Amino acid sequence: MMLPTHAIAGMLLALPAALAMPEFGSVALGAGFLGGVLPDLDMYVGHRETLHYPVYYAAVGVASLPVTLLIPSATTVGLTALLLAAAAHSVADVFGGGLELRPWEATSRRAVYDHYHGRWIAPRRGVGYDGSPTDLLLTVLLAAPLLAVVGPPYRWLVAGALVVAIVYASVRRTLPTVAEHLVSSLPAWTTPYLPARYRARHAPADE
């Protein structure tokens, strides 16, 4: 799934806490947004492995829930929202495409690395791929309740993420070709430092 989908999903996940504890509403929504974004900071360094933890984020996030309920504070609410949003991101990526440059071709058997079991989880492809029409539809559906409930500045943040999602989805199929042209113009010494999906027309099955 594309980053705006994850960011909006993280905010939606934090919405109940924001409504139940309005004094921490801003913290919850902000942490949900950041947690939705956090795993994809590994985009160019071990993508979906370095910062994607489908088991550990969920375990720690769920364990922190009773602490948050017993001792609500900006720290506990924010940390729990961050962890649960990051867990949702890591798990949701399993239902998208694999790590290949053109995920609609379904050549990769790797979706997200499960550190707990020490293996890659295969992509389910229920949402197609990041930026697919299904992914965009999901983004719109997730954004709708947030736009109806939250106020500024988070309403503008959701609207901005939605605009980014629409633009990204509209050009998604052309991006691999653009990336290949850019990579072909780079000095040869940079090649080993690029993710495999940018070095070949088809990423290897174990990418």
Rank of each mutant, 00 (worst) to 15 (best):
P103G: 13
T76N: 14
A9D: 03
L175Q: 12
L82C: 03
T75M: 10
L41W: 15
V150G: 00
L69G: 04
R172C: 05
A31I: 00
L19P: 02
T177E: 09
Y168I: 05
T5P: 07
Y56K: 05
H181F: 06
T5I: 08
T177V: 06
V140Y: 11
D130E: 12
P103Y: 04
G36M: 15
V27A: 05
R199P: 06
H6N: 11
Y113K: 07
A200T: 14
T76W: 03
Y53T: 03
L38R: 02
V183Q: 12
P39A: 10
T191A: 14
A31T: 00
G128C: 05
L41C: 07
G131T: 05
A143W: 04
P133V: 05
V55I: 13
V158W: 00
H89P: 06
A188P: 10
L157I: 07
M1G: 10
G36W: 11
D114I: 05
H181M: 10
A20T: 03
V140N: 06
L101C: 13
A88H: 11
V149R: 04
A111T: 02
D93Q: 02
R102H: 05
A200D: 09
R119A: 10
A169M: 10
D135V: 06
T76F: 04
L84K: 01
W189S: 04
V178H: 15
M11G: 01
H89G: 00
R125A: 09
H181E: 09
S132Q: 08
V27D: 00
T76M: 08
P187V: 14
L82M: 13
P4C: 12
G160P: 06
R201V: 13
H115T: 08
T75K: 09
R199F: 13
V167C: 07
L70Y: 10
V127N: 12
L194G: 13
A161P: 02
Y57T: 02
V27I: 15
G126F: 11
V45W: 15
W104T: 10
Y193D: 02
S185E: 08
G96N: 05
V37T: 12
L34I: 15
L84V: 03
V158S: 01
V150F: 00
A31N: 06
G46L: 13
I166M: 13
T75L: 15
M21T: 02
L136V: 10
V150N: 00
D40R: 14
G151S: 11
A85C: 04
T5R: 01
L19F: 00
G98E: 08
P152Y: 08
T191P: 01
A88G: 09
A92G: 06
G35H: 11
D42Q: 07
G32K: 00
